[in-house]
Amino acid sequence: MRNKKSTEEVALGIRRRVYEHAMRNNGGYLSQACSSAEQLAWLYNEELNLGDPTLPAIPKPFAGVPSAENPDYHTGAGYNGPATPDFDRLFIAPAHYALVAYATLIETGRMDPEGLEMFNQDGSSVEMIGAEHSPGMEVHNGTLGVGLSTAAGLAWGRRRNGDTGRTWVFMSDGEVQEGQTWEAVQACAYHGIDTVMAIMDVNEQQCDGAMSSVMEVGDIRSKFINFGAACVEVDGHDLSAIRDAAKEPHEGKPLIIMARTNPFHTMSILEERFPRLHYVRFKSEEERARMNVSIAADLGVDPIDYAH
């Protein structure tokens, strides 16, 4: 399917939708929209080779867990199109980016806006922390560090089947604190799996605060290269740099694009909360009103009337 919006317009639309949602619900994953909007917009609007969605534009309710007795079970991967040999596959590794991912699906015409109204509602498949049945999700990657391993395993199987499609991962930098991430890179390099490609949101934040306050990770790019990946480091808000990075030669190796980002990019008032930015819940009505006005001005829209 073709989206008529530019990638810049999609990124702005993502932030606007997340901002509106956060204001109406007294909190949300604002910082993740600040840091990752260009990356997800670029993936869905330009880079990924995906077919048309196979699931309804308005998501179905949660149909239960998979079992032989549950024919209605489905994953949310259908919003990324059919899983055919020539199409790409995408894993969104940090499940707490789900709100941003749903906004991306809406902005690229893969889900209706009504889907976001189901966010975190009882019985809904539009989970707050994305699960395998959530729109755009194929597996549950909520355990930090699982995404790249999942992609490596799938890509290895796809190669054995003769598939030509790539396996992409959207990651966060907190995942490099997990050994499984490095094992996945090493396995891809050993088996020469170069259809695994990842873009990592390097915003130096995680749920407990700044990355450096939880665990020092050192020179990530050098580590990726030493473990056998091709790795390019770019400004994650510079779409031209991201596009160029995706063209980096990486025969026989996975490609990791490290997209360094600002966790309050386009929402400057969030710097007041630094480094506690994982989930922004407003501390008072005064703060909510003040952030509403400030963020609206940054995004070029009118403040949200969240009283109705």
Rank of each mutant, 00 (worst) to 15 (best):
M137P: 01
S222P: 08
G209P: 11
M197Y: 05
E286R: 08
M171Y: 04
L50D: 06
G130A: 13
R89M: 13
D194I: 05
S172N: 09
Y44W: 12
P59N: 07
E183H: 04
R159V: 04
M128S: 15
N49E: 10
P61Q: 09
E286I: 09
T150C: 11
A307P: 02
V196K: 00
E248W: 02
G142K: 03
V217L: 11
N226W: 08
A189F: 07
Q180F: 04
L105Y: 00
M23T: 10
N262P: 06
N203Q: 08
E248H: 12
M267W: 01
V176D: 02
E132D: 13
R15T: 07
G76T: 01
R2K: 14
T104R: 00
I220H: 07
Y79G: 03
Y19L: 14
N262A: 03
G81V: 03
E127M: 07
E69W: 12
A184I: 04
V301K: 11
G76C: 10
G136S: 08
A210E: 12
C34I: 09
G153D: 11
H191L: 14
A101W: 05
N292V: 10
Q205G: 01
A63G: 03
S268Q: 08
A98S: 14
G130S: 00
S31T: 09
C231T: 07
G147P: 07
V126D: 02
P61D: 05
I58V: 15
E285S: 13
A11R: 04
G109A: 12
V202N: 05
A77F: 15
E271W: 01
H21S: 13
K283W: 06
D52Q: 14
A184W: 01
I14T: 03
V234C: 08
F264I: 02
V280Q: 13
T167P: 02
S36P: 04
A246F: 14
V232D: 04
D244N: 14
A37D: 10
V217A: 10
A95N: 00
R15N: 09
G145M: 04
H133Y: 15
T167Y: 00
D208G: 08
I257W: 13
C207F: 02
H250L: 07
A95I: 06
Q39T: 10
T164Y: 14
T84V: 14
H308P: 00
T181G: 10
G136C: 03
N3C: 15
F274E: 04
V126S: 05
G76Y: 00
G51W: 05
P66L: 07
E175G: 00
L255T: 05
D235I: 13
T7L: 03
K253G: 01
R290N: 11
Y73N: 13
N26H: 15
P275Q: 11
V126Y: 05
E38I: 01
S6T: 15
E69F: 15
D305Y: 08
H74A: 15
T108H: 06
A151D: 11
M111P: 11
G13F: 05
D173N: 08
I225N: 02
Y29R: 08
R243K: 13
G174S: 03
T108Y: 03
N49L: 11
A210L: 02
F91H: 06
